[in-house]
Amino acid sequence: MLSVESINVAYGPSQVLRELSLRVNSGEVVCLLGRNGAGKTTAMKAIMGILPLSSGKITLDGVDLGKLPGHEVARQGIGYIPQGRRLFSELTVAQNLEIGMLTRKSPPLVLDRILDIFPRLRERMDQPAQTLSGGEQQMLATARALCLEPKVLLLDEPTEGLQPSMIEAIREVIVQMRRQGVAVLLVEQRIEAVMAVADRVVFIENGRNLETLDAEGLKKDPNVLRRHLGV
């Protein structure tokens, strides 16, 4: 279980997250929702140890992530699919995946299994990541995160700018991960995509918790999405 308890995070003098809390159980998909600039990406970076906490606590199965050096966080089993994909652009597909495999020293068969999910990557192993199409780049970013056999998967706007077939592929991966007991934290702007997978939604505004609803509550009152997101 990933647990974020009352964290405060700032970029230099400007505070972005204020007493933010959330929880993701294994086998559960939690959607983090909020308008642009609400602090969703910042929350993910704080979980990954990229940004330091001014106060509060982040734990994964009882391990205090905030106390670990930055590079140790992912090794606890957190796969990160950053906003904008952030591939190692000049490295090949194979090298990008190798970095994911090295994070937790995954056994080689993991890679085979992942390439079965994304057969198009298998055909492009020696191609530099920057020469892939947008959809293929998103596949690679997803595959790279799956390479570390994560207990927790963080996806930051994974469907941004993708075609419907790719969006469906991403959704399938999320559902499959949930079935395998992975805790999934998803930032997603498209309401129908949220409705399709979310077990719970956490709304934030100006870096603060606004409201948390489970799937039932969401179905009863779908307008809450529109109200909080202003769409």
């Binding site: 990954m48 590079h71 952030r86 190692f88 652009s89 000049e90 790279r144």
Partner: peptide, 24 residues
């Protein structure tokens, strides 16, 4: 080499490199 791969990953995107366990 593997260490060269880690160096180039750190060069291309140090933040993401660290988020994948590379001790930048």
């Amino acid at each position: 080499s593997r260490i060269g791969l880690l160096m180039r990953a750190s060069q291309l995107d140090s933040e993401t490199a660290q988020a994948f366990g590379i001790p930048v």
